[in-house]
Write a protein that binds this DNA or RNA. Structure first.
Lengths: 352, 352
DNA sequence: TTACATTACTAACGCGCGTTAGTAACGCGT
DNA sequence: ACGCGTTACTAACGCGCGTTAGTAATGTAA
């Protein structure tokens, strides 16, 4: 490395002031009187020396690391196919940058959670934490709460009292299934996005049930299967449904990724979509426009979720206590070919 | 926060030793004699107090932050559709965890690079850096080199002298195009994955050219278009090709994502794939099995790339100087329906 | 002239840790 | 008794910064 580790003392020397003054000027400490002349001298000296304060020293003295932790709770399989992650990162990093902070990312497998959380917090490595994919069985969350550590959940844990940002999974599923009902379907199968330990999966399943019951149809538990995040699970669960001769004309698959597998299973049997089985997915992955047939689905505001989560967390870090603990964002139905509706979305792109 | 900030002094008090001893024991400093009895007392005291060393203090004293920086050089558009990112993260985080380090992630837009790099380095916030998507016009790279900062590129900058991990894009494209030639195609179009400022795009284009020339076919520059990472660019560029009546029977699209758009354009015209136009993509995104027709493509070892990059960087941090500066990993052709070959991959899943 | 506020700074402490130099106790040979 | 090496520690400095308490200089009212 270079010989020149520039410290605030160097800046002070060059500006002909004390190190304290340098600190006061550069940090714009309020309620302190510094003459305009010296202020400018300090700023110029800092610029000329390319001074960048040492992060560790700042953190040690100020007790703030200026780092936000993003914790992903998932298994390695899930992360590799996590299509939202990129958008989440995009949103979070932008927000965090706007206040000069950085993002530390960590994947935690559902087992050894507690220690990892605690280490990061006890070590004061992060000032706040955003947890994506929180689960009920996460004991470490209690520690966060007890220590009153600034925390925001991406996803939700009803009754946990944490700040959280999420979509209304139940309402979204309700919309999707109601759409199918509106198209005349009476027996509608459901494959969830994930096992029922995940709140999102339970909520989506509830939305499915409510839509069916509200429409006065009968709910047949035999038509329900649990997916596991990936396409393969969709393939297997759809096969399971088809094998049992359950006589359904439509299916709500609560994850586009899972739906891709379901599509493969359906076509493998020689059934047509939507003529034999109509399909509605959920998530609106970018590729869903390109599968065959284009997938009717529910769009989630992925980036917006991240932005909101970041905003709440940044407020918490400033000592505010936002009123609203649970932010719920809207979803929207995107009608394409797989559901058999008359008015599908126009061609994927317009010529420019 | 809690009242109890546990410091090494607390541990020392409880174990009845000096703070120095605590530090020596916990860090397992070699060449220091500590009796087994006190060593155990210290360890137990630390455990009982739930002692976790303060990251900032450690960093300040040891001059090491134990944090690796992952820098993504891309525009917001690109990141949202970056399908490799998740796998890259998976690999990196695992490697980094295995030595007790963490991962700081940052997105840098191709403009304001220099300052961002420098800040992170000057602030000593990170011990080493992995740069994904390096570009020739990146001036900040010079600073990294001049300061001899531990750096590994994901992707490559030939002649830059940096450590780098990448696939042989040229050879991969060569394989893809040769496959099409082997199926009898004489006029083969090409849509790149990205603008030619990106080395990967240039390399893939070169592989395409070499395959054509090696086969004794004539290379027609009019058949080449430049994609821009996303499906939309594939849609537009394929339309451009089709509009010009260039009479090609196959196309190599150097990115699956771009290929999805190309597929949409082709089908919109009523052409069939592969009968009218055969297609080979590149990247083997998880979803490429599910588009219609399933996309023949080149598979990249995404996680392996990340693991190798991390390994090299960790070695650099230990003061080693690995011989091999450029690691090149193998790719493989995955034959599916879009190219028209006789022996496509079997059904996407086997029943278990 | 004195008393007191205001302005514009600075000396010095502490954040929690790694690390170097040094010390005390002990054994061993002469 | 003395010197000397080994073992098992510890005192104290420094990492680079934020921040508090304090000071000197100047102005302002009584």
């Amino acid at each position: 490395m270079a010989t020149n580790r520039v410290t605030s003392q160097d800046v002070a020397d060059r500006a002909g002031v004390s190190r304290t003054t340098v600190s006061l000027v550069l940090n714009n400490v309020p309620g302190v009187q510094i003459s305009e002349a010296t202020r400018l001298r300090v700023l110029q000296a800092a610029r000329e020396l390319n001074y960048v304060p040492d992060a560790a020293a700042q953190a040690l003295a100020s007790r703030q690391s200026q780092i936000i932790g993003l914790i992903l709770i998932r298994t390695p399989d899930q992360i590799a196919s996590d299509v939202f992650l990129t958008q989440t990162l995009d949103g979070l990093i932008k927000s965090v940058h706007s206040v000069g902070m950085r993002l530390l990312i960590d994947i935690i497998e559902p087992e050894n959670q507690e220690t990892t959380y605690l280490q990061m917090i006890r070590a004061k490595r992060i000032d706040g934490i955003i947890i994506s994919g929180p689960r009920f069985d996460d004991g470490a969350l209690n520690v966060l709460r007890e220590n009153n550590f600034p925390t925001v959940l991406l996803g939700q844990l009803p009754g946990s009292g944490f700040y959280s940002v999420d979509v209304d999974n139940c309402a979204a599923a309700y919309t999707a299934v109601t759409h199918l009902i509106g198209l005349g379907h009476k027996r509608i199968a459901c494959i969830t996005n994930a096992p029922p330990i995940y709140t999102a999966a339970v909520d989506r399943l509830n939305g499915y049930r409510q839509a069916i019951e509200t429409a006065g149809l009968s709910h047949d538990p035999a038509l329900v299967r649990f997916g596991e995040f990936d396409s393969e699970s969709g393939y297997h669960q759809m096969n399971s449904l088809l094998n049992n001769g359950l006589g359904f004309s439509a299916a709500f698959v609560a994850s586009d990724l899972v739906a891709y597998g379901a599509i493969a299973a359906i076509r493998e049997r020689g059934f047509r979509i939507p003529e034999d089985i109509a399909l509605v997915g959920m998530d609106d992955l970018p590729v869903s426009r390109f599968v065959n047939p284009p997938l009717t689905t529910i769009r989630l505001p992925a980036i917006e979720l991240a932005l909101q989560a970041a905003e709440i967390l940044l407020r918490l870090l400033q000592g505010e206590q936002p009123e609203q603990r649970q932010v719920i964002l809207d979803t929207s139905l995107v009608v394409r070919g797989s559901c058999g509706a008359k008015q599908p979305e126009p061609a994927p792109f317009q010529e420019r």
